[in-house]
């Protein structure tokens, strides 16, 4: 009940924080896609590299987010960006790498070998094969990785408020430090709803992509 009253009084600020949160997550995942997808495709052609890359990406995932932010601060202080948007953004990009690289790698690896055979046999170059056949066929699984990354970073993004990156984590951080439970609840609720909503939206897009490509028989 109190939460609803809180939201009634603060919805403007809430929208502002949601927008900040989305910007942080959107930018981070956007950059993660631009780096992770090509990287995933690349290691799908180089089996020996794949295990190493997966291991490194896996290790990054195991670093607690609060610790990763802590590590970022002294490093980025060298360029005067120790706290705020940049360290949060970089941390989220790193966290997004594993689901995106892994799904891209698996998706490309799992393209039906007959499709690959047909593509090569018909005289496609490696690049043509990738762009005309393999990537379109892999798209639904790559999309699933992006979805995981988005939900993951929406959650982790909430902690970024501790290093002054803004977003819905503000309410949680501020609420805890002032022992204002309602504020914490409102922040947590908003983060959850945001994650669910975005996940649902991306799920729809993923479904649309699959309906065109996944039905092979």
């Amino acid at each position: 009940m109190e939460v609803i009253l809180f939201l009634q009084d603060n919805w403007r600020e809430m929208l502002q924080l949601t927008w900040e949160h989305l910007q942080l997550v959107g930018l981070a995942v956007g950059v993660a896609i631009l780096t992770g997808v090509p990287f995933g495709i690349y290691i799908a052609q180089r089996e020996s590299l794949a295990n190493l890359v997966m291991a490194v990406a896996g290790i990054i995932m195991t670093i607690p987010s609060i610790a990763l932010f802590g590590i970022m601060i002294p490093i980025l202080s060298l360029i005067g960006q120790g706290i705020g948007f940049l360290p949060a953004f970089l941390a989220l990009v790193l966290y997004s790498q594993l689901p995106i690289i892994r799904n891209t790698y698996i998706a490309i690896k799992n393209v039906n070998p007959e499709m690959r055979d047909a593509a090569i046999g018909m005289g496609m170059t490696a690049w043509e094969r990738l762009t005309k056949v393999e990537i379109p066929l892999a798209l639904p699984v790559i999309m699933a990785g992006v979805r995981t990354a988005v939900v993951l970073t929406i959650g982790i993004g909430a902690i970024a408020a501790y290093i002054g990156a803004g977003g819905l984590g503000e309410y949680i951080a501020r609420g805890i430090s002032t022992s204002y439970t309602t504020m914490v609840q409102a922040g947590a609720l908003a983060v959850s709803i945001l994650a669910l909503a975005i996940d649902f939206l991306l799920g729809r897009i993923q479904k649309r992509l699959s309906s065109q490509t996944a039905k092979t028989s």
Binding site: E114, M115, D117, A118, A119, I120, G121, M122, G123, M124, T125, K132, V133, P136, L137, Q212, T213, A214, K215, T216
Partner: peptide, 21 residues
């Protein structure tokens, strides 16, 4: 090899049609 393959018709079992096209 690329030019060679383009000049030879190739049909495989299960057709190998591309489902995305």
């Amino acid at each position: 090899p690329i030019a060679l393959r383009r000049s030879i018709g190739y049909v495989i079992q299960q057709t190998g049609l591309f489902p995305n096209m």
